[in-house]
């Protein structure tokens, strides 16, 4: 445990350490104030995140190598079994989609619209999870898609089973996602059975969300499905979020204590989906106003779809979108309506 004290003769640091420390402390405090108040550093953050991204990739390389080895060494039997499961699942989904077009038309007629609405999800982009931080204070994810892929800030991130979170910072090649289970994230939801709207707050635990704002006499039961309510400007209406698992009515307290389990597989996700929504659609989220100067962080037009190789089921491909000047009665105005209120889902803003 010797620090080899004799090895340094002139070990006094150059300059006065006190002065240096003062300079750095002032710099750090200035950075914090600029970063927190007024968001002056959004652009700086954008480029710093870009500069750090290669290191993040390097940091994650052991995990990636392990996954690669596991994928490569997967046996023929397990691959065949997986293939069989997937084609069974594909068949099931295809059967469900067969009626989709008809139902959509029927729905439009019931709503009194002349033309059928386009599908809500305009485009999606599969992103790989580069890094995950899951602890009691942070539940974050780093994705390998960024502004270069037209990813923007406060974009919804889903997986095949439910809502995962939203992007909170975007760099040219990467995007950081705050998960719905992060203690600082609140998801506007509604209970599907009753239509009651409330807010699901993250708990810092990957399989639990809290619903702290429901009164004791609220009609909530175990097993109720929570879907996004479309408020808040990030998630459109009707996407599954969580299922209620625990309802406790304490008569001495004005609010019920309710827990729900997220439907998305948060701790197992390796690939997630970034979604662009049709802005004029009635179920689309009302976009909040982003005051940042950086154009790359504003909501982006969806980039053109990458061609998906047609399986034997070409109808699974989403239909190409008509331009915004079509004859839909609710066609988006040139400037989308912008509520003054900022999105409530990002409490950090």
């Amino acid at each position: 445990m010797a620090f080899n004290a004799g090895a340094y003769r002139a070990s006094a640091p150059r300059g006065a350490p006190g002065l240096r420390f003062t300079v750095y402390a002032i710099l750090a405090v200035a950075l914090m104030v600029l970063d927190r108040r007024g968001g002056w550093l959004v652009t700086v953050h954008y480029y710093m995140d870009a500069a750090v991204y290669p290191i993040q990739l390097a940091v994650n390389s052991p995990t990636r190598a392990w996954n690669w080895v596991r994928d490569t060494l997967a046996t023929r039997e397990s691959l065949q079994a997986e293939n069989a499961t997937l084609s069974a699942r594909n068949r099931e989904l295809a059967l469900r989609t067969q009626r989709f077009a008809a139902l959509q038309r029927e729905n439009a007629e019931l709503r009194g619209l002349k033309a059928a609405l386009p599908p809500l999800a305009e485009r999606w982009l599969v992103a790989e999870v580069v890094n995950v931080e899951l602890n009691s204070q942070h539940q974050r994810m780093l994705l390998n898609r960024g502004a270069g892929n037209k990813v923007f800030r406060n974009q919804a991130v889903l997986d095949a089973t439910g809502v995962l979170g939203q992007t909170i910072s975007v760099s040219p090649w990467s995007a950081e996602v705050i998960l719905i289970t992060d203690p600082e994230h609140a998801t506007p939801v509604e209970i599907q059975r009753t239509g009651v709207r409330t807010i699901a707050v993250g708990t810092g635990d990957t399989d639990s969300l809290a619903l702290p704002y429901l009164p004791t006499n609220a009609d909530v039961k175990d097993g109720d499905l929570l879907v996004t309510s479309g408020l808040g400007g990030v998630f459109p209406q009707g996407y599954p979020v969580a299922r209620i698992t625990d309802v406790r009515h304490d008569l001495l307290q004005p609010l019920a204590q309710i827990r729900a389990t997220p439907l998305a597989r948060i701790d197992a996700a390796r690939e997630v989906t970034l979604v662009w929504f049709q802005p004029g659609h009635p179920a689309a989220p009302a976009r909040g106003h982003d005051a940042d100067g950086n154009a790359a962080l504003q909501p982006q037009e969806a980039p053109p779809l990458e061609p998906i190789p047609p399986l034997n089921l070409p109808r699974l491909k989403p239909r190409p979108q008509a331009p915004a000047t079509d004859s839909r009665p609710d066609a988006a105005p040139a400037q989308p309506a912008r509520p003054v209120q900022a999105p409530v889902t990002d409490k950090r803003a």
Partner: peptide, 30 residues
């Protein structure tokens, strides 16, 4: 080796941590 890194090392390592953790820029640095 206080001459090699010194306080600058602390500051910039902290900044790196801030970027990695998604913290307020300057928190770990300070």
């Amino acid at each position: 080796a206080p001459r090699l890194g010194g306080i600058s090392l602390g500051f910039f390592s902290g900044l790196l941590l801030d970027l990695f953790r998604g913290a307020v820029l300057g928190e770990n640095a300070l």
